[in-house]
Structures are given as C-alpha cells and as structure tokens.
Design a protein around this nucleic acid. Structure first.
Length: 270
DNA sequence: TGACAGGTACATG
DNA sequence: CATGTACCTGTC
C-alpha cells in the first residue's frame, strides 16, 4: 500500500458521479474500484489517500485512471465569477475527477445507461461481469470478475442478454459486441482519433447516439471538450443558460463543468 | 397507476 | 431534415 496527498479528490463523489458503475464503499469504510480487469481498494482521510497497490501499479494504472495530473482547483478558479450557477455547482461537486476508463467497458456501460437509472445500470453491469467476466484472484484470497470481453459478449444471443436484465438494449449490445469482435469497429483506432472523428466513429455502433458517444469521449477517451446532454443537463441549460451555454468561454474544459452541473442537478441542490 | 429513469432506432411528413 | 413513437424493467 502507498499513501498520496491529493487535492480536489473525493472518492464518495466520484463513486456517485455516474461515470463508473463498479465503484463503491466497503463495510470497513474503504472504497473499491473495478475497472476493466483491475481491482483496487483505497481509503480517504481528507487529502490523504491510501492506495492498496504497489507504487508501480499506481504509476502505471491509477494515476492515469483518476486523472491525477490535472489541476482541478485551477479549473474551478477559472469559472466566470459572473456565472453564479456554475460557481455553486462546482463548489458542491468539487473533488470529482473525469476518469479515464477502459473504452470497451465504457462503450457497453453507456449503452446500458440509456433510459435507465444508476442502481439498475450497476445491477446490469454486475450481472454481465458475474456471468461472462473472467475470474481473477487477489492476494488474500479475495476474488472478483473482470468486465467481459467483446469476444465473449459477441457469443451471447440476444435472448441470453435479455435474461441478464438488459431489456431492449440487449440487441444493441449484441450487435456492438459483434462489430468490435469482428474488427468492423476498431477500438484501438478510436483511441488515437481526435474528438470529432472518434465521436463520429462511435455513432456507427448500434445503441450509440450523440449523448452516449459524448459520454464515451469524455469518460474513456478524455476528450474534455465533449459535453453530453442528458435530461439533467438539458434542465440545467434551459433554466440557467437560456442564451446558450458559453462553450467559447469554457473551451478546453467544458466537459468538466458538464460533470459538475450533472452532479449538482442529480444530487440535490441543497 | 402511470410516468419516469443519464436515449436511440426507425418510421413518417 | 425535423418531429413522433416504441422500447425492457424496476420504482415511486
């Protein structure tokens, strides 16, 4: 285990931010994160964060995953002082990070997210992992399941996926898994594309529309100009930005502000 | 009880 | 191209 001092980092908020669906709190107060085929536990005391992994794994995996090289305090400070709504939202949501998640896992989980709520999204994702994910063992005997591969999901029938609780999204996931497994959609190429090109390519996947494509660009590819508009963000835009959101003013970090707004809209404005 | 939940595909005008 | 509608399923 290793300890780091990290500013603007809040595990509770990140777990509830709706970017990832396999992160949560354990009974002993620690948090766990399952990402692609990895598993991590961590603990927070103010800005002291304990990572239960090696320094090597922290450097190679988690530093990047949690976007620890980005200065979120400076970003918050660069919000327009006149923009009272965003000031409020960002203060309330401070500590959230834009994660850099596995592209394949993000693609599937955000197809699942459509017309869906967070508890059920989590349930669906866990069911997929339990049924089709490879089993891994940690030191200490604890075991967990990785997110299933495209090849594995491509071998599932639509009916099988429906029985995993996916509903009408089963067909989308079956087709998208097929497209990725066959190479028709090349995720490695998408990793290297600029934002607009990546978005356009993702839109070719069944079940991926503009909103989901932007979520994938933001939460997996780290294109922080991506700005997914869901029902909550639509409410925010209607109520607080009737003249239009100032994308020019916030160029280069609009996606982070979207995340602050989303969290603020979703988790009470008290 | 029906609307709604972090939308999308597909059919029309 | 813009608008309308069906769609799994659990929850309030």
């Amino acid at each position: 285990m290793i300890c780091k001092i990290i500013d603007e980092f809040d595990l509770e908020k990140i777990a509830a931010s709706g970017q990832c669906f396999r992160m949560g709190r354990l009974e002993n107060g620690r948090f766990f994160v399952k990402a692609a085929r990895r598993y991590l536990e961590l603990e927070q005391n103010d800005n002291h964060i304990t990572f239960y992994c090696s320094e090597k794994q922290f450097q190679e995996v988690w530093k990047d995953y949690f976007d620890l090289d980005t200065d979120y305090r400076t970003i918050r400070q660069s919000i327009d002082p006149e923009d009272a709504y965003m000031q409020r939202a960002a203060e309330m949501a401070a500590g959230i990070r834009i994660l850099k998640q596995d592209l394949w896992e993000t693609l599937i989980t955000f197809i699942i997210s459509q017309q869906n709520n967070i508890p059920r999204i989590k349930k669906c994702v866990n069911t997929l992992c339990d049924r089709y994910g490879k089993e891994h063992h940690c030191r200490g005997g604890m075991c967990y399941r990785a997110f299933p591969t495209a090849d594995r999901l491509a071998r599932c029938s639509e009916q099988e996926l429906r029985e995993a609780g996916l509903g009408y999204r089963a067909r989308y996931i079956q087709k998208t898994a097929q497209a990725v497994a066959s190479g028709e959609i090349n995720l490695e190429e998408i990793q290297n594309m600029p934002y607009e090109k990546a978005k356009e390519t993702l839109l070719c996947c069944s079940g991926v529309g503009i909103k989901v494509a932007e979520c994938i660009c933001l939460y997996a590819l780290h294109h922080i100009d991506a700005f997914p508009v869901d029902t909550h963000i639509q409410d925010m835009l209607t109520q607080h930005y009737p003249e239009g959101f100032p994308f020019d003013r916030y160029a280069g970090f609009a996606g982070i502000l979207q995340q602050y707004g989303f969290f603020y809209e979703l988790h009470g404005k008290a």
